[in-house]
Write a protein that binds this DNA or RNA. Structure first.
Lengths: 337, 337
DNA sequence: GTGAAAGCGCTAACAA
DNA sequence: TTGTTAGCGCTTTCAC
């Protein structure tokens, strides 16, 4: 890499002259500016990012800590974060916590050494279960702002971007009740994290309020053979005529299982799941989905963080919680279309 | 963040003493070392990463440029890269090229300003179509090594990690021929990128060598309604009894379409697709898959890059191409199990 | 055993 | 208009 020093030497001027010329300072003479810029272009000069970061005490880099990048929703949020950040001149350093508290702490501590200006993260499952928030507080105390999305720690004061999980399943369940479904089941592979709980509560509320049935819930484990579990569930509860799935695979598997048992979808069973458009194609008929607008969640999170980073007055204490509403997209696995 | 300066001041010693003490230099007296370390611990001192990078002229950071993070395979590779990099003390800065040549160039140029020590990337679709490789050469000329994976530019001299795409479909097709399938179709949504072409060639070779049919290929566009296209394809070619799918969704959709038309899988039609275990569950019976070992590809790429970065002699010119072999995992969508 | 000083690449206050 | 200098946080050589 070419440095200012080398340019200065070659042009027989001082380093600061070169620096000012390249930064369009008014101080420098017209033709000096021209000479400098020409040589800089010739040598493809770009300012050294590391030196700039050291000097200005900010890196224009955001640390992103994701629990699981193979989760389609989280990957999509990451996509949204990356796009917004890039557009606003920020890079992102990605760490994967693998749902582990320890890795989450490590990532936070590691990047808090000057590598990033702030964090965007989704709380790891283990951290949620153990309700551990000290590492977040510690990081914020160091002066590094955090924005949490999707799974958040309510007891940490910071900006947040969340989904209306409770409302989403409440409405989805009601929409099945409106189809006169009388045995609506709730299937979840994420019952131990905050959003999974909220989704279950939304379902429960709708059932207890309006339906003539008791709540009927199947909780899956990540290590389980989900196809098998869902099949047994259908076998045990022969009268299921509606399914709300809290995660992206369960909905698809539920449809395929129902079809496999000779049921018609949506005539005999309606299914709604949290999933993306691309996954919804994995069943015929297509799964009716609750869209979470993952990209927008990511973009919002990045926006909140960058705005906080670029605020002149860092005394701001009022933290924002932004709710990105889900949309029910009626495909062919439900009657109402 | 606490700095050496502050520690030095508080201890009434010089900055260099503190630095040496913390780095276990033999020069410093025992109890000075002790005092320094205690205070450092108390204040939770960590060396400023940016200052270190500037001083040592290396960042311990890898730039990763991915065409599409919503692609499950690519996300999994990223996972593998992240894990290996983290274990070896490197961070990763992720950029998404969105299959665009321009964004790929931007990312490369942007991070070549001292932000990273080298790159791991998968060539964008547009770059492959236009066969543009100058930006890669330019980057390497700047002294930043590149490791390419999956989709690579053969005319660029650098380390590469690839999949045995040709062999994979050749063998998969042969495995269907061995099941006495007589009308094996090839479905691809990725026919414009290098790996898509290789996969088609492997299929063609097997068909032309051993089968009694002509090659039968369906090429899908990303914007198409894939369910519809595949349905029409099955309608037009009623005698299809085998399918090789070059991408992860097409295989699932093919099975579901066949079932929907009343065909039995695998009795009437066998299906094999490039997909991951989790996606294979999206059909009943489960899709027989060609596993690409994405995580391992990522880990290998990171290993190659880090080894090159840490070689004392940077004169090394012999570049390695590592082939990670696919595995055919027989699930229930084929006869042979 | 400890400290002063230089230098990584850059910006900016101040001097000329 | 241009140059000198200090300093961001750190390591390391060389003096003391």
């Amino acid at each position: 890499m070419v440095t200012l020093k080398q340019l200065a030497k070659e042009l027989n001027v001082s380093i600061s002259t070169v620096s000012k010329a390249l930064n369009n300072s008014e101080e420098i003479g017209e033709d000096t500016v021209k000479r400098v810029k020409e040589l800089a272009k010739l040598y493809n000069y770009t300012p050294n990012k590391v030196a700039l970061s050291l000097k200005q005490n900010k890196t224009k880099t955001i640390g992103v800590i994701i629990p699981d990048i193979l989760n389609h929703f989280l990957a999509k949020v990451l996509f949204g974060i990356e796009r917004e950040a890039t557009q606003r001149g920020y890079n992102i350093i990605t760490c994967i916590s693998n749902e582990s508290l320890e890795k989450e702490e490590e990532a936070l501590d590691l990047l808090a050494n000057g590598s990033v200006d702030g964090f965007i993260l989704c709380v790891a499952e283990e951290s949620q279960i153990k309700n551990e928030i000290n590492h977040f507080k510690r990081t914020i105390a160091k002066g590094l702002p955090i924005v949490m999305f999707d799974r958040v720690a309510h007891d940490v004061l910071c900006d947040k971007v969340i989904v209306d999980d409770f409302d989403a399943t409440y409405k989805a369940t009601n929409s099945l009740i409106a189809e006169h479904r009388k045995n609506i089941a709730f299937i979840s592979r994420i019952d131990d994290i905050s959003v999974g709980k909220l989704r279950e509560r939304g379902y429960n509320k709708a059932i207890l309020e309006k339906a003539i049935q008791e709540p009927l819930v199947l909780k899956l484990n990540k290590k389980d053979d989900n196809q098998q579990k869902i099949k047994s569930f259908f076998k045990k509860h022969k009268n299921i005529d509606g399914v709300i799935a809290a995660d992206s695979s369960s909905g698809i598997i539920a449809i395929n299982t129902a079809l496999n048992k000779g049921l018609k979808v949506p005539k005999d069973v309606s299914v709604i799941g949290f999933a993306s458009k691309s996954v919804s194609e994995h069943s015929i008929p297509r799964l009716t989905i609750i869209r979470q607008h993952a990209k927008q969640i990511g973009a919002n999170a990045a926006d909140l963080l960058i705005r906080r980073l670029e605020k002149k007055y860092d005394e701001e204490i009022d933290f924002k919680t932004k709710i990105v509403k889900t949309t029910l997209v009626n495909n062919k696995s439900t009657l109402k279309q």
